[in-house]
């Protein structure tokens, strides 16, 4: 279970308060107007944005002040999820060992993860030699390999076309099922939320609240969300 206890985030004049808990294995969409602090919320959970007060727990362990890599999570950003000078296999292998000095067994794991996302045979390609969808698959292969119990997505598929995005979401859902990971996914697209997230967290007017049941919330949105949905 991911739990945010009275968390307050201050950045310049921006303030965000968050109180919510997400059960293990749950899939949650994070929605709200742009500029409301969705990315900031994920950044705080991932350890990139300092928390002014309050605590973040994963299960019984407090992770509020842990460095990003020590937290039990994987995060995918809007862009720059791959290192452009490294091959697909190396980009995935970083999830296993930052030194990139892999044993034969570990290399096999990497190849297997790439095959699982449908990229068998493309191990040696650099990101620039891959399509946008293939680049997303490489990043997902790394998520698969890292086996972290919590997965944060900051709209990594926003630049993909609708069909490709649907494909990625399906692959994402499979990966979450396989690894049993808890998913927090920022999205601008209500259809995404309906497609794979039974629950949503609403970030608006300086507060992050939820989770609410997706269908019920979207059918009867509070004023802030209604303004956003239009």
């Amino acid at each position: 279970m991911l739990r945010l206890d009275d968390v307050a985030i201050m950045q310049g004049g921006f303030a965000l308060g968050a109180v919510f808990a997400v059960a293990q294995g749950e899939r949650v969409a994070v929605i709200g107007p742009s500029g409301a602090g969705k990315s900031t919320l994920l950044g705080a959970i991932a350890g990139f944005v300092p928390v002014a007060s309050g605590q973040i727990f994963w299960g019984a362990a407090e992770i509020t002040r842990l460095p990003p890599a020590a937290r039990p999570l994987s995060i995918l950003f809007q862009d720059n999820n791959l290192f452009p000078h490294l091959s697909a296999a190396e980009n995935v292998a970083l999830g296993l060992k930052p030194s990139l000095r892999l044993t034969a067994a570990e290399q096999a794991h990497v190849a297997h993860a790439l095959a699982r996302v449908g990229l068998a045979g493309l191990e040696a390609r650099r990101p620039a030699q891959l399509s946008g969808g293939q680049q997303s698959r490489v990043a997902l292969a790394r998520v698969l390999l890292r086996q972290k119990p919590l997965l944060l997505l900051d709209e990594p598929f926003a630049a993909l076309g609708p069909a490709l995005k649907a494909e990625m979401l399906a692959l994402l859902a499979e990966i979450c099922t396989e690894t049993g990971a808890t998913l927090l996914m920022v999205t601008h697209d209500i259809a995404d939320a309906r497609a794979i997230a039974p629950e949503v967290i609403l970030v608006a007017e300086g507060r992050a609240e939820g989770p609410f049941a997706t269908g019920a919330l979207l059918e009867n949105p509070p004023p802030a969300l209604r303004a956003y949905l239009g």
Binding site: A46, G47, F48, P67, P68, A69, A70, S74, I75, F77, N80, N81, F83, H85, L86, L94, G95, P98, S99, L100
Partner: peptide
Amino acid sequence: DSHGRLADSLGLHGLARLRILSLPR
């Protein structure tokens, strides 16, 4: 700016970060 967070999230630190990220870039 472009890849620091990714490196942080993967635990790419110290000499490994220099060798794998900074020097090539």
